[in-house]
Nucleic acid binder design. Structure first.
Length: 404
DNA sequence: TCTGGGGTCCTAGGACCC
DNA sequence: TCTGGGGTCCTAGGACCC
């Protein structure tokens, strides 16, 4: 018999909004935007105008994450929007995980503002889990200035569900023996892994609560959901054996996409942006000391229909120019000459090092030289900033800078 | 001034091989 | 005369998460 697991899920309340609130306060702002009608929103002029986080008051007005600022404003005329500051968010995120890693090495970073902690493994050191949760919750607030929710359960899934029960600054438990009472009554839409498409289908099948799904017939359900049916039913029953994975998991891919300031249909406008994106992704790749075997261009037309077009390379690369050239080709192959609103590049199948396939046309020495040059460019950028060097046109660099 | 960006995982069809 | 079948790789698209 295995020891019962105790998992924490720790989730920053309204992360982006809380962190921006702290940023403003430290800069002398007179009031706390967490207490007002406020949201973090992208820039509407550059067509990034969606809600990224909202205050409890804004939420009460019906403002939801992901909707346009235009709609949010309609629902909540008093709302004020603040721009995101990703560097500051990253700083706070790191500070949080560092604080927690002081107590346990078994922490899985799930996103910028949430993580799992395997408490079962350290319980003998710190005692009762509820008391410990209270202690770290207070420590986070006292030292970092923001509140978190903590879910305590016997699995990652239930811990995650528990941390979402009510907010902010709460601790909830969802032990296996509490599943019927606390999980089953919730709408099926609330279950982790059930998104808009799936929940719509489930409702059509007369499955409305998590309990309905938990008791659904797997054979019947697999007619509609294939292999995912069993998984869904397990989740509804609170069954999840997945482990807390503490090591920094290897990235599977690297991507960078951008919404264009306006729809574009001329390659003279599009290619400089693709060049800037090539520089971005290849620099990240080289920073990780990786090579990519697959290059994909991603684009979205003005009707929001998205396309990907990819190619597996004979020889993995980390070269800016190779990535740019291949991306251009891929784009021209896949593009139907409709105006596009978004473009980007994704690198996949990352490997540590390369053994070059012998190819008649591969000039080994030249390739090495180009790589060295790319590294030199990276170094100069590190010292003097992105705008110091690069073939990208002004437009490309300006766009790039906006993202950093 | 309507609709972000960075990820992961899954599926399905076609090519190709034995 | 009627036309395998299993495994793997590659590509495109979709669902979901924060």
């Amino acid at each position: 018999m295995s020891m019962e697991r105790i998992i924490f899920h720790i989730d920053v309340n309204n992360a982006f909004l809380s962190w921006t609130a702290l940023d403003l306060l430290r800069k002398g702002y007179q009031y706390d935007i967490r207490e007002s009608y406020a949201a973090i929103g992208g820039d509407e002029k550059s067509r990034r105008g969606i809600v990224l986080a909202k205050s409890p008051k804004a939420k009460k007005c019906g403002v939801t994450t992901g909707e346009t600022l235009y709609i949010a404003r309609k629902k909540c005329p008093a709302i004020r929007f603040y721009p995101p500051n990703y560097e500051w968010y990253q700083y706070n995120s790191k500070a949080l995980f560092q604080l927690l890693s002081h107590y346990s090495p078994d922490i899985e970073v799930a996103s910028i503002d949430e993580c799992y902690l395997d408490y079962g493994k350290v319980k003998n050191l710190y005692g009762d889990e509820y008391e410990f949760a209270k202690k770290i919750q207070k420590e986070i607030f006292d030292t970092l200035g923001f509140t978190v929710n903590i879910g305590i359960a016997n699995s990652k899934l239930c811990a995650k569900m528990a941390s979402d029960f009510s907010k902010p600054n709460k601790i909830h438990t969802l032990y296996n023996w509490e599943i019927k009472e606390k999980l089953f009554p919730l709408p099926v839409d609330d279950l982790f892994g059930i998104g808009k498409q799936t929940s719509a289908k489930l409702h059509r099948l007369n499955i409305h609560t998590i309990s309905d799904l938990a008791h659904a017939n797997p054979v019947e359900l697999s007619k509609y959901f294939k292999n995912s049916a069993t998984k869904m039913i397990e989740w509804a029953n609170g069954i999840d054996d997945s482990e807390v994975i503490s090591e920094e998991t290897e990235r599977k891919g690297i991507s960078n996409t951008t919404t264009l300031p306006k729809d574009m249909s001329r390659t003279e406008e599009i290619f400089p942006i693709l060049q800037a994106i090539s520089e971005n992704v290849s620099t990240s790749l080289r920073k990780k000391e990786k090579y990519a075997s697959v290059i994909a261009v991603i684009f979205k037309d003005k009707f929001f229909k998205s396309y990907t077009h990819q190619r597996k390379l004979e020889n993995p690369t980390c070269s800016t120019s190779v990535i740019f050239e291949v991306s251009k080709e891929l784009f021209l192959e896949g593009w139907k000459r409709e105006p596009i609103r978004l473009i980007g590049i994704r690198l996949d199948q990352l490997t540590d090092h390369v053994t070059y396939q012998s190819s008649l046309f591969e000039d080994f020495e030249e390739k090495k030289e180009q790589e060295t040059l790319d590294f030199v460019v990276d170094e100069i950028k590190k010292k003097f900033g992105d705008q110091a060097i690069g073939k990208a046109s002004l437009t490309g660099n300006q766009i790039k800078r906006k993202f950093d």
